[in-house]
């Protein structure tokens, strides 16, 4: 009971916190976005074989990396929830899953736009494409489970269990799909000795990723606040229902 009371106070406080410092983050995001755009479109040198289309890389890959990072945060938050049953961990879990899905969607949309002129096809069931699609499907189904479970203590519990399952599934997926087929260009980051980018390309890549990371922080904070307010709303409703009965 005591614990419940503190949780209620905390959620009341979180629900009242205004956007505050988020405005600064949004400003930083805007500036980084403009810089990333200039780097990717104008400053970075044109790649030899893929030509101008390689510039899509600077939005495509940061989208994926940001999405993966958000999913990792989702796993950590879910494990913390399972041990501590803290509503705040659950709010981080839902925020990171949704934001991660948004960034992974960017990766999946920009991929075919690049693939059409370079490969001549929109989509192929190659290892990395398939794995990304599978991850997207997983976290979409995670959000669906949250959506379809009645509000209350059950929802975060089931969601956390599912998040742990999906996290452990990812490496197995990676192996299965890799054996299944591979067509994607080899990694240029942490790739073999000849795989590497020119320094100016690295700058464009880091600029793009930095912009996305800042936006990830902004979006996750906003979504986290929403999740906390939703928890507060559910609490108040339960209390009202108790009084009525």
């Amino acid at each position: 009971m005591e614990q419940k009371k503190t949780a209620e106070n905390l959620s009341a406080r979180a629900a009242k916190t205004g956007p505050g410092k988020v405005a600064w983050w949004i400003g930083a995001g805007m500036i980084l976005m403009a810089w990333a755009l200039a780097e990717a479109w104008l400053i970075a040198p044109t790649e030899r074989t893929m030509g101008i289309y390689q510039r899509i890389f600077y939005v495509h890959v940061p989208g994926a990396f940001t999405g993966f990072l958000a999913f990792f945060i989702n796993f950590i938050a879910s494990v913390i929830y399972l041990f501590r049953r803290s509503p705040r961990a659950d709010a981080w879990a839902v925020a990171s899953a949704e934001v991660g899905l948004a960034f992974l969607s960017i990766n999946l949309i920009t991929g075919p736009i690049w693939a059409k002129p370079v490969w001549g096809i929109w989509w192929t069931w190659d290892a990395r494409l398939t794995l990304t699609l599978v991850l997207w499907v997983m976290y979409a189904s995670y959000l669906l489970l949250r959506h379809l479970t009645p509000a209350g203590e059950l929802q975060p519990r089931l969601a956390a269990a599912l998040a742990v399952f999906f996290f452990f599934d990812t490496p197995i997926d990676y192996m299965a799909i890799r054996w299944w087929r591979t067509q994607h260009p080899q990694p240029v980051i942490l790739g073999g000795p000849n795989a590497g980018m020119a320094p100016a390309m690295w700058v464009a890549f880091w600029a793009g990723w930095a912009a996305f990371l800042v936006w990830m922080v902004v979006l996750m904070r906003l979504r986290y606040r929403q999740a906390r307010q939703r928890q507060r709303l559910d609490e108040l409703r339960r209390a009202a229902a108790l009084r009525a009965s």
């Binding site: 499907v137 997983m138 189904s141 479970t149 009645p150 089931l158 269990a161 599934d169 299965a176």
Partner: peptide, 30 residues
């Protein structure tokens, strides 16, 4: 495991495959 999860949810019979199929992809390939 997912059956134990989905039994609490709305659209129970629909949700079970929606949870199981994404997870089972590597097993299905194998």
């Amino acid at each position: 495991f997912f059956s134990a999860m989905s039994v609490h949810t709305r659209y129970r019979a629909l949700l079970l495959p929606l949870l199981l199929l994404p997870l089972a992809i590597p097993a299905v390939i194998a």
